[in-house]
Design a protein around this nucleic acid. Structure first.
Length: 425
DNA sequence: TCTGGGGTCCTAGGACCC
DNA sequence: TCTGGGGTCCTAGGACCC
Protein backbone atom coordinates (compact mmCIF):
# COMPACT_ATOMS: atom_id res chain seq x y z
CA UNK A 1 0.00 0.00 0.00
CA UNK A 2 1.10 3.49 -0.85
CA UNK A 3 -0.12 6.64 0.87
CA UNK A 4 -0.14 10.09 -0.61
CA UNK A 5 0.10 12.82 2.00
CA UNK A 6 -0.90 16.20 0.60
CA UNK A 7 -0.91 19.48 2.48
CA UNK A 8 -4.26 21.26 2.31
CA UNK A 9 -4.15 24.65 0.56
CA UNK A 10 -0.46 24.58 1.33
CA UNK A 11 0.63 28.20 0.78
CA UNK A 12 -2.47 29.53 2.54
CA UNK A 13 -1.93 27.13 5.42
CA UNK A 14 1.68 28.32 5.78
CA UNK A 15 0.56 31.94 5.95
CA UNK A 16 -2.05 31.03 8.54
CA UNK A 17 0.52 29.38 10.79
CA UNK A 18 2.27 32.73 11.08
CA UNK A 19 -0.84 34.92 11.08
CA UNK A 20 -3.75 33.20 12.84
CA UNK A 21 -5.99 36.16 12.01
CA UNK A 22 -6.25 34.61 8.55
CA UNK A 23 -7.95 31.51 9.95
CA UNK A 24 -11.51 31.02 8.71
CA UNK A 25 -11.15 34.01 6.37
CA UNK A 26 -11.08 33.80 2.58
CA UNK A 27 -7.41 34.00 1.55
CA UNK A 28 -5.56 33.80 -1.78
CA UNK A 29 -1.82 33.76 -2.50
CA UNK A 30 -0.63 35.30 -5.76
CA UNK A 31 2.11 34.28 -8.18
CA UNK A 32 5.47 35.96 -8.47
CA UNK A 33 4.39 39.14 -10.23
CA UNK A 34 1.09 39.13 -8.35
CA UNK A 35 -0.42 38.06 -11.66
CA UNK A 36 -2.31 34.86 -10.95
CA UNK A 37 -3.80 32.93 -8.06
CA UNK A 38 -1.59 30.05 -6.98
CA UNK A 39 -3.33 29.07 -3.73
CA UNK A 40 -6.85 29.43 -2.39
CA UNK A 41 -8.35 28.81 1.01
CA UNK A 42 -11.41 26.59 1.28
CA UNK A 43 -13.62 29.68 1.56
CA UNK A 44 -12.29 30.99 -1.76
CA UNK A 45 -12.69 27.65 -3.49
CA UNK A 46 -16.32 27.67 -2.36
CA UNK A 47 -16.80 30.97 -4.20
CA UNK A 48 -15.90 29.19 -7.44
CA UNK A 49 -12.67 31.10 -7.98
CA UNK A 50 -10.40 28.98 -10.14
CA UNK A 51 -6.78 28.02 -9.59
CA UNK A 52 -4.53 30.09 -11.85
CA UNK A 53 -7.13 32.79 -12.42
CA UNK A 54 -5.61 36.19 -13.23
CA UNK A 55 -5.87 38.45 -10.21
CA UNK A 56 -7.24 41.44 -12.11
CA UNK A 57 -10.19 39.41 -13.35
CA UNK A 58 -11.44 38.55 -9.89
CA UNK A 59 -10.92 42.00 -8.39
CA UNK A 60 -14.67 42.33 -7.98
CA UNK A 61 -14.97 39.14 -5.91
CA UNK A 62 -12.00 40.24 -3.83
CA UNK A 63 -13.75 43.48 -2.93
CA UNK A 64 -17.18 41.97 -2.35
CA UNK A 65 -16.06 39.05 -0.17
CA UNK A 66 -13.17 40.86 1.51
CA UNK A 67 -10.71 38.24 0.33
CA UNK A 68 -7.27 38.63 1.91
CA UNK A 69 -4.71 38.81 -0.89
CA UNK A 70 -1.09 37.87 -0.21
CA UNK A 71 2.02 37.92 -2.36
CA UNK A 72 3.86 34.62 -2.33
CA UNK A 73 6.76 33.95 0.01
CA UNK A 74 8.54 30.89 -1.34
CA UNK A 75 11.29 30.96 1.26
CA UNK A 76 8.66 30.47 3.94
CA UNK A 77 6.87 27.70 2.02
CA UNK A 78 10.11 25.89 1.32
CA UNK A 79 11.01 25.97 5.00
CA UNK A 80 7.59 24.76 6.12
CA UNK A 81 7.72 22.01 3.51
CA UNK A 82 11.03 20.79 4.89
CA UNK A 83 9.53 20.59 8.38
CA UNK A 84 6.48 18.66 7.20
CA UNK A 85 8.66 16.19 5.28
CA UNK A 86 10.91 15.69 8.30
CA UNK A 87 7.91 14.73 10.39
CA UNK A 88 6.63 12.35 7.68
CA UNK A 89 10.03 10.71 7.45
CA UNK A 90 9.69 9.59 11.07
CA UNK A 91 6.86 7.26 10.05
CA UNK A 92 8.66 5.34 7.32
CA UNK A 93 12.15 5.25 5.84
CA UNK A 94 10.60 4.76 2.39
CA UNK A 95 9.32 8.21 1.50
CA UNK A 96 9.32 10.06 -1.80
CA UNK A 97 9.06 13.83 -1.62
CA UNK A 98 7.05 14.44 -4.75
CA UNK A 99 6.52 18.19 -4.61
CA UNK A 100 6.65 21.07 -2.18
CA UNK A 101 3.41 19.91 -0.54
CA UNK A 102 3.14 16.18 -1.31
CA UNK A 103 4.89 12.97 -0.34
CA UNK A 104 4.33 9.29 -1.09
CA UNK A 105 4.83 6.95 1.86
CA UNK A 106 5.42 3.21 1.54
CA UNK A 107 2.90 1.74 3.96
CA UNK A 108 4.38 -1.72 3.67
CA UNK A 109 7.39 -0.44 5.61
CA UNK A 110 6.00 1.61 8.43
CA UNK A 111 8.09 2.43 11.45
CA UNK A 112 8.03 -0.12 14.26
CA UNK A 113 6.27 2.38 16.48
CA UNK A 114 3.26 2.68 14.16
CA UNK A 115 3.17 -1.03 13.39
CA UNK A 116 2.92 -1.93 17.04
CA UNK A 117 0.31 0.60 17.83
CA UNK A 118 -2.14 0.19 14.97
CA UNK A 119 -1.35 -2.67 12.62
CA UNK A 120 -3.19 -3.64 10.60
CA UNK A 121 -5.64 -0.72 10.86
CA UNK A 122 -4.47 1.69 8.17
CA UNK A 123 -7.07 4.36 8.85
CA UNK A 124 -5.90 4.65 12.45
CA UNK A 125 -2.35 4.96 11.16
CA UNK A 126 -3.39 7.75 8.82
CA UNK A 127 -5.22 9.57 11.59
CA UNK A 128 -2.14 9.41 13.77
CA UNK A 129 0.05 10.81 10.97
CA UNK A 130 -2.38 13.69 10.38
CA UNK A 131 -2.46 14.60 14.03
CA UNK A 132 1.28 14.51 14.51
CA UNK A 133 1.96 16.65 11.43
CA UNK A 134 -0.67 19.12 12.59
CA UNK A 135 0.74 19.29 16.10
CA UNK A 136 4.38 19.68 15.10
CA UNK A 137 4.01 21.98 12.09
CA UNK A 138 0.53 23.51 12.20
CA UNK A 139 -0.18 22.29 8.66
CA UNK A 140 -3.35 20.27 7.93
CA UNK A 141 -2.89 17.35 5.54
CA UNK A 142 -5.07 14.85 3.69
CA UNK A 143 -4.07 11.24 3.19
CA UNK A 144 -5.13 8.87 0.41
CA UNK A 145 -4.11 5.22 0.32
CA UNK A 146 -4.09 2.83 -2.65
CA UNK A 147 -2.18 -0.01 -4.26
CA UNK A 148 -0.35 2.30 -6.67
CA UNK A 149 0.66 5.94 -6.75
CA UNK A 150 -2.09 6.72 -9.24
CA UNK A 151 -4.73 5.12 -7.03
CA UNK A 152 -3.33 6.87 -3.96
CA UNK A 153 -3.67 10.16 -5.82
CA UNK A 154 -7.31 9.44 -6.54
CA UNK A 155 -7.87 8.42 -2.93
CA UNK A 156 -6.31 11.66 -1.81
CA UNK A 157 -8.70 13.75 -3.90
CA UNK A 158 -11.55 12.01 -2.13
CA UNK A 159 -9.89 12.37 1.26
CA UNK A 160 -9.79 16.15 0.79
CA UNK A 161 -13.58 16.19 0.55
CA UNK A 162 -14.23 14.08 3.61
CA UNK A 163 -14.56 15.06 7.23
CA UNK A 164 -11.71 12.82 8.41
CA UNK A 165 -9.25 13.85 5.69
CA UNK A 166 -8.42 10.18 5.12
CA UNK A 167 -9.57 7.78 2.39
CA UNK A 168 -8.52 4.21 1.72
CA UNK A 169 -9.08 3.02 -1.84
CA UNK A 170 -8.79 -0.72 -2.34
CA UNK A 171 -10.80 -3.89 -2.69
CA UNK A 172 -14.48 -3.51 -3.55
CA UNK A 173 -14.38 0.26 -3.40
CA UNK A 174 -12.19 0.70 -6.48
CA UNK A 175 -14.75 -0.04 -9.20
CA UNK A 176 -17.40 2.27 -7.77
CA UNK A 177 -14.96 5.14 -7.41
CA UNK A 178 -13.43 4.75 -10.88
CA UNK A 179 -16.85 4.54 -12.52
CA UNK A 180 -17.74 7.95 -11.10
CA UNK A 181 -14.39 9.54 -11.96
CA UNK A 182 -13.91 11.59 -15.15
CA UNK A 183 -10.64 10.91 -16.97
CA UNK A 184 -9.53 14.53 -16.54
CA UNK A 185 -9.25 13.91 -12.80
CA UNK A 186 -6.63 11.20 -13.21
CA UNK A 187 -3.03 12.04 -12.44
CA UNK A 188 -1.16 12.20 -15.75
CA UNK A 189 -4.21 12.92 -17.91
CA UNK A 190 -4.12 16.54 -18.96
CA UNK A 191 -6.11 18.48 -21.55
CA UNK A 192 -4.44 16.90 -24.56
CA UNK A 193 -4.75 13.28 -23.42
CA UNK A 194 -8.32 13.80 -22.23
CA UNK A 195 -9.35 15.06 -25.65
CA UNK A 196 -7.81 12.07 -27.40
CA UNK A 197 -9.44 9.63 -24.99
CA UNK A 198 -12.86 11.21 -25.39
CA UNK A 199 -12.53 10.96 -29.15
CA UNK A 200 -12.05 7.24 -28.55
CA UNK A 201 -15.16 7.04 -26.43
CA UNK A 202 -13.34 6.80 -23.11
CA UNK A 203 -14.77 9.13 -20.51
CA UNK A 204 -14.41 7.58 -17.09
CA UNK A 205 -11.48 6.16 -15.17
CA UNK A 206 -13.15 2.76 -15.23
CA UNK A 207 -13.46 2.80 -19.03
CA UNK A 208 -9.79 3.71 -19.22
CA UNK A 209 -8.89 0.88 -16.89
CA UNK A 210 -10.83 -1.55 -19.07
CA UNK A 211 -9.50 -0.16 -22.36
CA UNK A 212 -7.44 -2.33 -24.69
CA UNK A 213 -3.69 -1.96 -24.21
CA UNK A 214 -3.05 -1.64 -27.94
CA UNK A 215 -5.42 1.29 -28.32
CA UNK A 216 -3.88 3.18 -25.42
CA UNK A 217 -0.32 2.48 -26.55
CA UNK A 218 -1.24 3.70 -30.02
CA UNK A 219 -2.99 6.87 -28.84
CA UNK A 220 -1.03 7.92 -25.73
CA UNK A 221 2.22 5.97 -25.89
CA UNK A 222 3.90 4.28 -22.97
CA UNK A 223 2.94 7.08 -20.61
CA UNK A 224 -0.74 6.31 -21.17
CA UNK A 225 -0.17 2.59 -20.84
CA UNK A 226 1.51 3.08 -17.49
CA UNK A 227 -1.49 5.03 -16.23
CA UNK A 228 -3.82 2.20 -17.29
CA UNK A 229 -1.71 -0.41 -15.53
CA UNK A 230 -1.55 1.72 -12.42
CA UNK A 231 -5.35 1.98 -12.41
CA UNK A 232 -5.45 -1.82 -12.55
CA UNK A 233 -3.31 -1.94 -9.44
CA UNK A 234 -0.01 -2.79 -11.06
CA UNK A 235 2.88 -0.61 -9.94
CA UNK A 236 4.57 1.18 -12.84
CA UNK A 237 5.80 4.30 -11.08
CA UNK A 238 8.15 3.05 -8.40
CA UNK A 239 8.75 5.09 -5.28
CA UNK A 240 11.77 7.36 -5.74
CA UNK A 241 13.29 7.31 -2.30
CA UNK A 242 16.65 8.65 -3.37
CA UNK A 243 16.54 12.18 -4.77
CA UNK A 244 17.68 11.93 -8.39
CA UNK A 245 20.27 14.49 -9.47
CA UNK A 246 18.87 17.61 -11.05
CA UNK A 247 19.05 17.68 -14.84
CA UNK A 248 18.20 21.27 -15.62
CA UNK A 249 17.57 24.55 -13.90
CA UNK A 250 15.66 27.64 -14.99
CA UNK A 251 15.47 31.27 -14.00
CA UNK A 252 12.85 33.27 -15.85
CA UNK A 253 10.57 36.20 -15.14
CA UNK A 254 7.80 38.14 -16.78
CA UNK A 255 8.53 41.80 -17.34
CA UNK A 256 6.52 44.47 -15.55
CA UNK A 257 6.20 46.27 -18.90
CA UNK A 258 6.93 45.31 -22.49
CA UNK A 259 10.63 45.30 -23.36
CA UNK A 260 11.60 46.23 -26.90
CA UNK A 261 15.30 47.09 -27.00
CA UNK A 262 18.12 44.59 -27.28
CA UNK A 263 19.88 46.44 -24.49
CA UNK A 264 17.09 45.86 -22.02
CA UNK A 265 16.61 42.26 -23.08
CA UNK A 266 20.31 41.68 -22.51
CA UNK A 267 20.09 43.27 -19.08
CA UNK A 268 17.28 40.92 -18.16
CA UNK A 269 19.09 37.85 -19.47
CA UNK A 270 22.27 38.86 -17.66
CA UNK A 271 20.31 39.23 -14.43
CA UNK A 272 18.60 35.87 -14.77
CA UNK A 273 21.88 34.21 -15.70
CA UNK A 274 23.42 35.63 -12.54
CA UNK A 275 20.61 34.05 -10.54
CA UNK A 276 21.02 30.76 -12.35
CA UNK A 277 24.76 30.75 -11.67
CA UNK A 278 24.11 31.31 -7.98
CA UNK A 279 21.67 28.39 -7.86
CA UNK A 280 24.20 26.28 -9.68
CA UNK A 281 26.95 27.00 -7.18
CA UNK A 282 24.66 26.47 -4.21
CA UNK A 283 23.96 22.99 -5.59
CA UNK A 284 27.69 22.47 -6.26
CA UNK A 285 26.93 21.88 -9.93
CA UNK A 286 28.19 23.16 -13.26
CA UNK A 287 26.37 23.37 -16.60
CA UNK A 288 27.48 22.39 -20.07
CA UNK A 289 24.98 24.40 -22.10
CA UNK A 290 22.20 26.92 -21.81
CA UNK A 291 18.98 27.67 -23.56
CA UNK A 292 18.18 31.37 -23.78
CA UNK A 293 14.58 32.25 -24.46
CA UNK A 294 12.29 35.25 -24.77
CA UNK A 295 8.62 35.53 -25.61
CA UNK A 296 5.92 38.08 -26.25
CA UNK A 297 2.57 38.04 -24.46
CA UNK A 298 0.71 34.79 -25.06
CA UNK A 299 -2.58 36.65 -24.76
CA UNK A 300 -1.93 38.99 -27.67
CA UNK A 301 -2.15 38.27 -31.37
CA UNK A 302 0.74 36.37 -32.97
CA UNK A 303 2.43 35.31 -29.77
CA UNK A 304 6.08 34.58 -30.37
CA UNK A 305 8.61 32.44 -28.60
CA UNK A 306 12.26 32.30 -29.59
CA UNK A 307 14.98 30.21 -28.07
CA UNK A 308 18.52 29.21 -28.82
CA UNK A 309 20.89 26.69 -27.35
CA UNK A 310 24.44 27.73 -26.54
CA UNK A 311 27.00 25.10 -25.61
CA UNK A 312 29.93 26.15 -23.45
CA UNK A 313 33.46 25.10 -24.34
CA UNK A 314 33.82 23.81 -20.79
CA UNK A 315 31.27 23.04 -18.09
CA UNK A 316 31.12 25.99 -15.76
CA UNK A 317 29.27 27.73 -12.97
CA UNK A 318 31.22 30.94 -13.31
CA UNK A 319 28.87 33.90 -13.56
CA UNK A 320 30.78 35.92 -16.12
CA UNK A 321 31.45 32.90 -18.32
CA UNK A 322 27.77 32.02 -18.27
CA UNK A 323 26.67 35.58 -18.97
CA UNK A 324 29.11 35.85 -21.87
CA UNK A 325 27.52 32.90 -23.63
CA UNK A 326 23.95 33.79 -22.65
CA UNK A 327 24.34 37.25 -24.16
CA UNK A 328 25.61 35.78 -27.43
CA UNK A 329 22.44 33.73 -27.44
CA UNK A 330 20.33 36.80 -26.71
CA UNK A 331 21.69 38.54 -29.78
CA UNK A 332 20.67 35.57 -31.87
CA UNK A 333 17.06 35.45 -30.77
CA UNK A 334 16.40 39.18 -30.58
CA UNK A 335 13.98 40.58 -33.16
CA UNK A 336 13.45 44.27 -33.53
CA UNK A 337 9.91 45.53 -33.17
CA UNK A 338 8.71 42.82 -30.78
CA UNK A 339 7.29 43.62 -27.36
CA UNK A 340 8.86 41.01 -25.08
CA UNK A 341 6.95 40.08 -21.95
CA UNK A 342 9.11 37.31 -20.61
CA UNK A 343 12.68 36.10 -20.79
CA UNK A 344 14.83 33.54 -19.11
CA UNK A 345 17.67 31.10 -19.19
CA UNK A 346 17.63 27.32 -18.82
CA UNK A 347 20.86 25.59 -17.85
CA UNK A 348 21.28 21.95 -18.80
CA UNK A 349 23.82 19.20 -18.90
CA UNK A 350 24.39 19.62 -15.17
CA UNK A 351 27.33 17.82 -13.60
CA UNK A 352 29.18 18.02 -10.31
CA UNK A 353 31.29 21.15 -10.19
CA UNK A 354 34.31 19.00 -9.39
CA UNK A 355 34.16 17.54 -12.86
CA UNK A 356 35.08 19.46 -15.96
CA UNK A 357 33.85 18.34 -19.33
CA UNK A 358 35.81 19.93 -22.11
CA UNK A 359 34.29 20.37 -25.53
CA UNK A 360 37.19 20.97 -27.83
CA UNK A 361 36.19 21.87 -31.33
CA UNK A 362 39.17 23.53 -32.87
CA UNK A 363 42.70 24.68 -32.24
CA UNK A 364 41.52 27.91 -30.71
CA UNK A 365 39.86 26.01 -27.87
CA UNK A 366 42.94 23.87 -27.55
CA UNK A 367 45.01 27.03 -27.04
CA UNK A 368 42.55 28.45 -24.59
CA UNK A 369 42.63 25.38 -22.42
CA UNK A 370 46.23 24.51 -23.12
CA UNK A 371 47.18 24.21 -19.46
CA UNK A 372 44.55 21.60 -18.85
CA UNK A 373 45.51 19.68 -21.96
CA UNK A 374 49.08 19.61 -20.78
CA UNK A 375 47.96 18.23 -17.42
CA UNK A 376 46.01 15.49 -19.13
CA UNK A 377 48.96 14.56 -21.29
CA UNK A 378 51.17 14.40 -18.21
CA UNK A 379 48.73 12.19 -16.34
CA UNK A 380 48.26 9.91 -19.33
CA UNK A 381 52.01 9.58 -19.63
CA UNK A 382 52.16 8.59 -15.96
CA UNK A 383 49.15 6.31 -15.82
CA UNK A 384 49.17 4.88 -19.32
CA UNK A 385 47.97 6.30 -22.58
CA UNK A 386 44.24 6.80 -22.84
CA UNK A 387 43.62 6.54 -19.13
CA UNK A 388 42.08 9.96 -19.04
CA UNK A 389 39.75 10.92 -21.78
CA UNK A 390 40.44 14.52 -22.82
CA UNK A 391 36.80 15.34 -22.29
CA UNK A 392 36.89 14.53 -18.59
CA UNK A 393 39.03 16.60 -16.32
CA UNK A 394 38.84 17.03 -12.58
CA UNK A 395 39.43 20.16 -10.55
CA UNK A 396 43.05 20.67 -9.43
CA UNK A 397 42.39 19.17 -6.01
CA UNK A 398 40.61 16.22 -7.53
CA UNK A 399 43.51 15.63 -9.90
CA UNK A 400 45.88 15.76 -6.96
CA UNK A 401 43.87 13.04 -5.25
CA UNK A 402 44.11 10.95 -8.40
CA UNK A 403 47.87 11.22 -8.40
CA UNK A 404 48.13 10.16 -4.77
CA UNK A 405 46.04 7.05 -5.31
CA UNK A 406 47.01 3.92 -7.11
CA UNK A 407 46.80 3.94 -10.89
CA UNK A 408 44.40 1.06 -10.66
CA UNK A 409 42.00 3.17 -8.68
CA UNK A 410 42.26 6.11 -10.98
CA UNK A 411 41.15 4.06 -13.94
CA UNK A 412 37.69 3.63 -12.50
CA UNK A 413 36.29 6.16 -14.90
CA UNK A 414 32.95 4.45 -14.97
CA UNK A 415 32.18 6.34 -11.79
CA UNK A 416 32.29 9.61 -13.67
CA UNK A 417 29.30 11.02 -15.53
CA UNK A 418 29.05 9.90 -19.12
CA UNK A 419 30.51 12.44 -21.47
CA UNK A 420 28.66 13.20 -24.62
CA UNK A 421 30.16 15.02 -27.54
CA UNK A 422 28.93 18.56 -27.81
CA UNK A 423 27.92 20.01 -31.10
CA UNK A 424 29.87 23.00 -32.37
CA UNK A 425 28.48 26.40 -31.37
C1' DT B 1 27.55 1.83 -62.21
C1' DC B 2 24.06 1.29 -59.01
C1' DT B 3 22.23 0.23 -54.65
C1' DG B 4 20.78 -0.76 -48.38
C1' DG B 5 20.03 -1.32 -43.87
C1' DG B 6 20.93 -0.78 -39.20
C1' DG B 7 22.53 1.63 -35.46
C1' DT B 8 23.60 5.76 -32.15
C1' DC B 9 23.37 10.35 -30.65
C1' DC B 10 21.28 14.69 -30.34
C1' DT B 11 17.61 18.17 -30.44
C1' DA B 12 13.17 20.44 -30.52
C1' DG B 13 8.74 20.13 -29.38
C1' DG B 14 4.91 18.48 -27.00
C1' DA B 15 2.82 16.24 -23.33
C1' DC B 16 2.44 16.17 -18.33
C1' DC B 17 3.12 17.74 -13.17
C1' DC B 18 3.03 21.13 -8.92
C1' DT C 1 -3.96 47.96 -18.61
C1' DC C 2 -3.32 43.93 -15.75
C1' DT C 3 -2.37 36.59 -16.95
C1' DG C 4 3.80 32.54 -12.70
C1' DG C 5 7.76 29.85 -12.39
C1' DG C 6 10.12 25.54 -12.24
C1' DG C 7 10.44 20.97 -13.45
C1' DT C 8 10.38 15.78 -16.02
C1' DC C 9 9.71 12.42 -19.63
C1' DC C 10 8.88 10.72 -24.37
C1' DT C 11 9.08 10.85 -29.39
C1' DA C 12 10.08 11.95 -34.13
C1' DG C 13 13.38 13.21 -37.17
C1' DG C 14 17.96 14.62 -38.69
C1' DA C 15 22.97 13.89 -38.74
C1' DC C 16 26.28 10.75 -38.90
C1' DC C 17 28.62 6.25 -39.02
C1' DC C 18 29.59 1.55 -40.62
Amino acid sequence: MIALVDCNNFYVSCERVFDPRLLDKPVVVLSNNDGRIVARSLEVKALGIKMGAPAFKIQNAIDVHEIRVLSSNYTLYGDMSRRVMEVLATFTPRIEIYSIDEAFLDFSQLSIRLQHRYAPDLSETCREIREVVRKWTGIPVSIGVGKTKTLAKIANDIAKKTETGVFLLYGDKVEGVLRELAIEEIWGIGRGFAKILRLNGIQTAWQLREARDGVIKQELGVIGLRIVYELRGRNCLPLQVKVPPKKSLTVSRSFGRPVESLKELKQAIALHTTGAAEKLRRLELAASSARVFASTSQFKENPRYDAVRVTFPVTTNDTSELIYHALLGTEKIYREGLAYKKAGVLLLGLVSENIRQLHLWDDRDRERYGDLMETIDLLNAELGAGTIHPAVIGSPSWLARCRSRSPRYTTRWDELPVVRAGSPP
